[in-house]
Each structure stands twice: as structure tokens, then as C-alpha cells.
Design a protein around this nucleic acid. Structure first.
Length: 477
DNA sequence: ATGTGC
């Protein structure tokens, strides 16, 4: 560990002010001894850079899956004061509201004798890969509806149930969406892509619950051992990417307009209260809503396939929860003992609200929200719960996944897609992707261990492990 | 992440 970094608890570290010039607050991050060697110098510097931004509250935060990203590190959290703070696309990420949802089924492993067949059918039903095209013909009006009302609009169109909405963070639609700040170009990319999985680390996975660590909370979440589940990981596709690109350009100018000094151009931002900052927030919220609609439509496609194939009822595949990984949101938090409305940026980080938060459905008031942490291809995913500790230490946030440790190009050099797929099949995991390179780039070896990341946040008390899920079949984008 | 890069 860098000599300037101070250890403050078993898995907790502090970057002191002065690590980079202009830090207004310290940086803090969570990392176990085993993960220490995965920490990149660049990510550490980025975490310190975030602490220089105007109006940042208490500290910049890094989760154990931290790695180098655009401006902010991935696995980064920053909360900003409503009056003096800024909003930054680099603190949200290009894939606005990249997120993950988990659906349970009444099936067990023995009910799916032909996993390759199921995966093939799902691969055909859910458009996958770069530039894949939508299964639904979306009108301009429906696109606007999705930008304004997210998953609610998708349900209104017939893609899901009223109950689904209650099981999405923000009820599947953020307040403050302003479709008028989503460019025509972004809309053009969004229309043909809604209901598509995308590429990279996005996936659709068939899993089984193989270990319950907290039976009481698992019961509340509706999860039982041996059950087959579906996990969907995707975001706002080309639309969110275009919104980020468009507004970065505007905010790079705003940096000069408002005389903001930045250690890195990629931290382009504007005051939360400025027209430029408000425009980005409105467009970002609209993109987040599009992503919720996207995951909702994919959920519907999967349910229809299961209903037909396994002769079950649509309602027998309830949504456990849907969480956002890349978003900035207004939330109330305690700041120096005062309840304050702050703008929390989570980039590659998950909300982990503990018991008693009014945003949560009544059934989760006592146990905290479900937190879904996807593993890499072939490694376990986890269902966690939010905690009081997260409210106190991390503005109600935890990790989002495993975190890449090897570049895509390097991954392709070390193994071919065929080799990776064969190794996974030997472990009983079926993999399907549009091309072999996609599989090589996502080999389990290129990621930090999801188990180690999850263990770290559990031990630090910023979420707690409820159940572990083992992959059986994976569709990669 | 991304109709993937100047």
C-alpha cells in the first residue's frame, strides 16, 4: 500500500488531504488484504481527484471493486451539497443506470434437463451484442413515456406487472427526468435498442440459489435454496452513452464558465444549481428511466419464454429487486448531525439503504433493501441487504460487482473464447455469446473475486450477505 | 459501456 495511505480499520483506508493538490476532504476506501494488490495507482489518484470537487461532503469513497474509470473511479461514491456542490457525468459513467435485477422462478435444477436448449432459446429471444435491434417497435411517444416514467411506462405497455414497479429502486422511474434535454441523436439510438441486452459485461444468467446465509431475510426477499433464478445486467445502451457524450461537451464549457479548477478534464462538471448542471441531471434521469424500461422489457421476454417452455404462470416469476449501478440521485442523509438533501453520485456502486428508509417497500422496512451483486461469468453472484452501517459510512452505498483486473486486449491474448467456454462447461456452466471474442474478454480470470469483494463489504458492515447464487447458463453480449 | 479508435 502507498506510504501516504492510512489504515483506519480492518478493511478501511484513508487518503489524506494533500495526496493530490486541492483536496477539500479525504478519500476513504474499503479493501481487504487479499484485494490490496488489485488496487491501481490510477484509481487511487482518481479517488483523490474526486475529493477536490466543489461541495463534496465528508469524503470521496471507494468500494472494494474499485478500478480506473473515466474521471471518477468505477466503484466510486461522492455526495455533493445542494448549494455548493457539482454534478459530473464522470461520476455516473457512460452507461447511465447500468444495473441489475433478479427474478425468481418456481423451478429447481432438475426442472431444466436441457440447459443448452434453454440458453439457446433465450439467446434467440433477447437481442444481444453491440448494435442489436429491438424486439418492439417503439413510437416517439412511447420513447418519451419511457424517458419520463421508466419501468412504469413499460408495464403500461404490457411488459410486466404493477408489482414489478414496487420492486425497482425509485419505483423504476426517477423524479426530475427532462426528456427535452435528451438529444435527437440519443433518441434515434434509443428507439431501436429498447429491450436489448447490449455487450461487454452485460449478461443474462440462469442461476441457482446454492447457499442461504440469512434465512429470515431470504424469506422476506422470496428466495429459497435450490431455486432457479434469472439475473439481468444491462443499462441504457446507446441512448445513455449519447446523453453522456452530449452533456460532457456542454459541461467541459461550463467548467470555464463557472471557473472550476479541475485536476483532470474528465471530471467535467457544473454546479448542481446551474442551468448546465440541471440539464445534465434531467437528461441523466431520463436515461436512467429508459434503462429501467429496458430491463423491464427483457424481463417480460424471459417470462413469456419460461411460461411457454415450463408451463408456469407469469406471476410465478416475481422480481426480487432492481438496482442501479451508475447514477446520481437526490437523497436525504445525515451530514454532521443535520438531515440534508444531497446529490449522491454512484459509479459502479449500489445503493444499500438500511432498515427504516421511507424509499423502501414496507416488506423491507425491517431488513434493509435487497442489494444484487453480479459475479463475473462463471463465478457466484450474491444477494445482500442494505445496513445502518452503510447509512453511516457510505451515504447508503456498497460495491457493485467484481471489478476488472485485466484489460480486454490482454484477456484475448491469454485465452481464446473457445477455451474459456470449454473450461466453464467443465464446471457445468453453459455460455452463449454473439462471438468468441466476447467470451474471451469476459473470462472469470479478468475480474476480481466476487466472493472476496462481497466478503469485504459484509465485514465492513456496509451491507450483509443473504444468499449466494451459482451460475448455470450465461448469455453474454 | 459504446452504430468501440484520430
Amino acid at each position: 500500500m502507498n506510504a501516504q495511505i492510512r489504515q483506519t480499520a480492518a478493511n478501511e483506508w484513508e487518503i489524506p488531504r494533500g495526496f493530490v493538490p486541492g483536496m477539500r476532504v479525504p478519500g476513504r476506501f474499503f479493501l481487504s488484504k487479499n484485494l490490496a494488490e488489485t488496487l491501481e495507482d490510477g484509481a487511487l489518484t482518481q479517488l483523490a481527484n474526486v475529493a477536490t470537487l466543489p461541495g463534496i461532503i465528508r469524503c470521496s469513497l471507494g468500494m472494494p471493486d474499485i478500478h480506473w474509470g473515466y474521471g471518477f473511479p468505477i466503484g466510486g461514491v461522492g455526495a455533493f451539497d445542494a448549494e455548493t456542490g457539482v454534478i459530473s457525468p464522470g461520476g455516473v459513467g457512460f452507461d447511465i443506470n447500468c444495473g441489475v435485477r433478479m427474478i425468481t422462478t418456481p423451478l429447481h435444477v432438475s426442472d431444466i434437463p436441457d440447459m443448452p436448449g434453454l440458453i439457446e432459446d433465450l439467446f434467440t429471444a433477447v437481442p444481444t451484442g453491440v448494435g442489436s435491434k429491438s424486439p418492439c417497435r417503439l413510437s416517439q411517444q412511447d420513447l418519451t413515456g419511457m424517458l419520463e416514467n421508466g419501468a412504469k411506462h413499460a408495464v403500461m405497455m404490457g411488459y410486466g406487472t404493477e408489482r414489478d414497479i414496487l420492486r425497482c429502486e425509485e419505483n423504476g422511474a426517477m423524479d426530475g427526468a427532462q426528456p427535452e434535454h435528451v438529444s435527437k441523436k440519443a433518441r434515434q439510438r434509443g428507439i431501436p435498442q429498447c429491450g436489448t441486452l447490449g455487450s461487454g459485461n452485460h449478461f443474462l444468467e440462469i442461476q441457482t440459489v446454492d447457499k442461504i446465509e440469512d434465512q429470515e431475510t431470504a424469506d422476506l426477499f422470496g428466495v429459497t435454496e435450490g431455486q432457479i433464478c434469472v439475473m439481468i445486467h444491462c443499462g441504457s445502451r446507446g441512448l445513455g452513452h449519447q446523453v453522456c457524450t452530449d452533456h460532457l461537451q456542454i459541461l467541459e464549457q461550463a467548467v470555464h464558465t463557472y471557473g472550476i479548477e479541475l485536476p483532470d478534464r474528465q471530471l467535467a462538471c457544473a454546479p448542481l444549481s446551474s442551468p448546465e448542471g440541471e440539464a445534465y441531471f434531467g437528461a441523466m434521469a431520463a436515461s436512467a428511466n429508459y434503462a429501467w424500461a429496458n430491463r423491464q422489457i427483457i424481463t417480460h421476454i424471459v417470462r413469456e419464454l419460461f411460461v411457454k417452455k415450463f408451463r408456469i404462470e407469469y406471476e410465478e416469476m416475481p422480481l426480487v429487486y432492481d438496482v442501479a449501478h451508475n447514477v446520481a440521485k437526490w437523497e436525504e442523509h445525515d451530514v454532521n448531525g443535520v438531515r440534508q438533501n444531497v446529490c449522491v453520485h454512484r459509479k459502479g456502486a449500489t445503493r444499500a439503504f438500511g432498515p427504516g428508509r421511507r424509499e423502501l417497500p414496507h416488506e423491507f422496512q425491517g431488513c434493509g433493501q435487497p442489494v444484487i451483486i453480479p459475479g463475473s461469468m462463471g463465478t457466484p453472484s450474491y444477494l445482500l441487504a442494505g445496513t445502518k452501517g452503510a447509512m453511516e459510512k457510505t451515504f447508503g452505498s456498497t460495491c457493485h460487482g467484481s471489478g476488472r483486473v485485466q484489460s480486454r486486449s490482454s484477456a484475448k491474448k491469454s485465452q481464446t473464447g473457445e477455451e474459456v467456454a470449454r473450461a466453464l462447461l467443465a464446471q457445468g456452466i453453459v455460455v452463449r455469446a454473439p462471438n468468441q471474442a466476447a467470451i474471451a474478454e469476459e473470462a472469470p480470470e479478468v475480474y476480481k473475486s466476487s466472493s472476496e469483494v462481497v466478503r469485504t463489504v459484509h465485514d465492513a458492515g456496509i451491507s450483509r450477505i443473504i444468499a449466494r447464487l451459482r451460475p448455470l447458463g450465461v448469455i453474454k453480449g
